[in-house]
Write a protein that binds this DNA or RNA. Structure first.
Lengths: 219, 219
DNA sequence: TAGATTGTTAATCGATTAACAATC
DNA sequence: TAGATTGTTAATCGATTAACAATC
């Protein structure tokens, strides 16, 4: 159990810290102060120090933070060395893109199985992995015990599938179907990804931008 | 210009309201109270009423909200009827998935051009649209004046490309390259999407779950 | 009218920022 | 030592929740 409950806002910033520190390390930067890091990330130095001190004192007064050491600490906190067994269900356009585009090992995940309910897709090879038919999920899970499932299935199939997977022992869902998964049992973790929501904030921004004539003429 | 500046937290909830109201409408629900909607969405009724009242009084005391009318209002606020001219650059796995998977018109966007720098990709047809070579971007933008660009290019290509596009008049970026775009000029809108960040919050959750033995044994 | 539910103000809570003593 | 920068406490700010009068 961690010291205290860490707030979601802090947790959501951790991957970003990890990313920036990785870039700094790649550039050969050895040390960095919270002030300089805040400048580069567009945060305040206070916030960075507060965030990090949720987990421990990783810096040194008068010196700052060692880039590599801090990155490693954050990686540990995130659990990126955990090799969580992960399966992906639904190999349409999006599923295939996720399978090939996301760096799973950098996220602490091992992608060990691909599944699709379409018999013309099952059997094919994608990214050097064979796609299994969803009918074989039960047996696969009994044997491999995956912890995390990525859902790239149609909206109407997601809830039923997820329930089944929970009964097979899956404890976390990265859900790209347009549904809103939710489990009473909050031992089951869910990230509902709605890409369109992110695009719509741009649509909103464009409409409410003072530069914009369309919006102006509408009011 | 809108009444007051709306907070980003409210704006980010709008697409979600829109989505839920759409589902309710599809189910034939005519009216809904903030209380019932809050139950279904996992929010508080207070928050819903506060959020909506940023934009106007869309309800009726003693009755609640008309589902369709409210949905239309939120759609207007988001600007989903704007037909923003949109281009997508980079038709690798992810670019192709975005092009085919996202419902652009529902987001107020018209996807009018696909571009790739690879001459073997340029010329091909994707989703019934011809892919142009990135060399033709300048001319295309002069002619069509797209407002929004979706970047599915490699990290190292994103910043330079984005700068060029701004000079061509593009005012908003949906950025899937692993870079962090940022413009001093805050008339340029940016949504940096880092899919892996979302996955990592699950990794974190699995590691800090009390059920988890790996994490326990590490402390 | 009575009941329901909004719109809105006030209270609370949490997250961010500022300040500064501790210390490398 | 002097300077820099952390870790941490206190102050501020903003967002969420609660309460209730207005009103359909």
């Amino acid at each position: 159990m961690s010291k205290q409950e860490i707030s979601p806002s802090v947790i959501r910033r951790l991957p970003r810290y990890h990313r920036f520190l990785g870039e700094l390390a790649a550039q050969g930067t050895i040390r960095i102060s919270s002030k300089e890091l805040s400048r580069q990330m567009g945060l305040t130095a206070s916030q960075i120090r507060q965030d990090l001190n949720c987990f421990g004192g990783f810096g040194q007064q008068g010196y700052g933070y060692n880039v590599c050491a801090l990155r490693d600490e954050i990686g540990q906190i995130l659990g990126i060395h955990a090799h969580r067994k992960t399966i992906l269900i639904g190999l349409g356009n999006l599923g295939r893109a996720i399978a090939s585009h996301v760096n799973f090992s950098q996220c602490g995940c091992d992608l060990i199985g691909l599944f699709d309910s379409n018999p013309f897709v099952a059997g094919r090879d994608i990214e050097g992995m064979q796609v299994h038919h969803t009918d074989t999920l039960s047996g696969f899970c009994r044997q491999e015990s995956p912890e995390l499932a990525i859902l790239c299935v149609p909206e109407n199939a997601a809830a039923e599938l997820a329930n089944k997977l929970v009964s097979f022992g899956v404890r976390a869902f990265w859900n790209f179907s347009h549904s809103n998964l939710h489990f009473e049992d909050d031992a089951v973790l869910v990230e509902n990804v709605h890409l369109a929501d992110s695009l719509m904030t741009l649509t909103y921004g464009l409409s409410h931008d003072s530069m914009d004539e369309t919006a102006d003429s509408l009011r």
